[in-house]
Design a protein around this nucleic acid. Structure first.
Lengths: 252, 252
DNA sequence: CGCGCAACTTGAGCGTGGTCAAGTCCGCCG
DNA sequence: CGGCGGACTTGACCACGCTCAAGTTGCGCG
């Protein structure tokens, strides 16, 4: 007979990378099927996280990289005074934990925005496999590099864009990522709060709230708390560009 | 007899990593002396760049990582409209080019701020060596991770700090990095223009100019065009914190 | 030497986005 | 069912940093 329901869930989690729906988004993408087994052997499952649970905290020893399997997380840094800066939101298939490679200590924190499940890649084991499988090594570098490029986007958003352009870019980026997950990219269900969005963009919550309202008035969005429907994608795209207000432009 | 002077310079450049003054800041730091020779064999020299010369441009194929040997560079991205966002300034011992690992194309650009010389690490060769020397592999990952962490700092600066706090943080960071180069960290000679500083911080040049003046009035700095002397480091440190104006604080 | 230009500085005015405050919506729990 | 609290919205006001404009300084170059 079958074991109890929660154990069954764990068994489902324990499936191999090759049968995972996130296969082509995740680390295994780009390595051969024969090497997949060796990677599979290193993947451990982490019990599901509830909303607000921490995956790792600043100062935690570096033990593993993590792949979001379902749900969503935010990563952030916090200074002595307790001020928070959110670095990113992480959807299924995305990998977290690279911040700790430099010092073997996490310098940022990761928190679940909703109930989430996680694949854990213990770094000691992973290193062993990458040394045997050069393609995996290259793939790992590629994934970190993607992280670097993604942070460039965040910097450009903060440094060069107006508040409205920022929010438009943010929504488009979310829509893109949902679409890659084969979800509807025009009917978003935001896992993060208005406070999180504001913080991520370097704004205050009132500004974000006003922008949602304004974009709804313009007919670009239909907003109902966490649910955001993109009614006019082409207009949203236009709002990302600073046509009207070309400020802070060149660098000499 | 000795060859002509410019050839002699080239020979000096062709010295090994172990005799390089930047040894402990650079990639070799952390790998054994026996493995250094193998790394040495991969290092090529790149002719010196003049002010304004590009090391790589957006869209260039990924060929190598680069270490600044002397001088200084800026890296930046540019959108369709030509708007620039500077991502970072790179001093001797620092490594550039990680942006291209993801796609095998550079997605950012690197330009010399002054006459600079560069060590080139052709990636094909480097990969061969890292596969033979696991310690180098780990060291390479550590260096990329440092890049990620450095970008976190940039994001926090842009997202959470006021203009004056940003400039103070920027100057302190520069001072720190000059000190690691065993140069005087209190007498900076800025290789970048006011425009570059403003762009890096997400401000306009007028604001940066006014802030330099204000900090000089306060007795924190002594400014003369590119030359900046830090007269009261403890005050500069205090200016980095947002004591007076605690805005945009928590993330909910 | 003096012209011209680029880099930078300084001032006056304005607007985006922040602050403060009140109010609404909704879920949770007794 | 009703009261509480947290998330969000909306409005009025204000200020930091942007814009525009007019200098100033320093340097390359004919």
């Amino acid at each position: 007979m079958e074991p109890a329901a929660n154990v069954l869930d764990l068994n489902q989690l324990r499936r191999s990378c090759s049968s995972c729906a996130l296969y082509e988004l995740c680390l295994p993408a780009g390595i051969g099927v024969d090497d997949l087994d060796r990677l599979d052997a290193t993947v451990k499952d982490k019990r599901a996280l509830d909303r607000g649970d921490m995956l790792y905290r600043e100062g935690d020893p570096f033990e593993a990289l993590y792949v979001v399997r379902s749900g969503a997380l935010k990563t952030f840094v916090q200074n002595e005074a307790g001020d928070v800066q959110i670095l990113g939101f992480h959807l299924p298939g995305e990998i977290l934990g690279f911040d700790a490679l430099a010092t073997n200590l996490h310098v940022s924190q990761a928190e679940a925005l909703e109930r989430s499940s996680i694949c854990e890649l213990p770094y000691a084991k992973l290193q062993q496999v990458t040394s045997e499988v050069p393609a995996l090594h290259r793939q790992l570098m590629r994934v970190i590099s993607r992280e670097v490029v993604e942070e460039h986007r965040h910097l450009v958003m903060m440094g060069r864009q107006q508040a409205q352009e920022q929010l438009a870019s943010f929504l488009r980026s979310l829509a893109d990522r949902y679409q890659r997950l084969h979800r509807d990219g025009s009917a978003l269900n935001l896992p993060m709060s208005r406070y999180d969005i504001a913080n991520y963009l370097g704004l205050v919550v009132e500004t974000v709230s006003r922008l949602f309202s304004r974009m709804e008035e313009m007919g670009v969005l239909q907003v109902n708390r966490k649910s955001v429907r993109i009614l006019r994608p082409e207009l949203l795209a236009a709002l990302c560009r600073s046509d009207a207000a070309p400020r802070r432009k060149d660098a000499g």
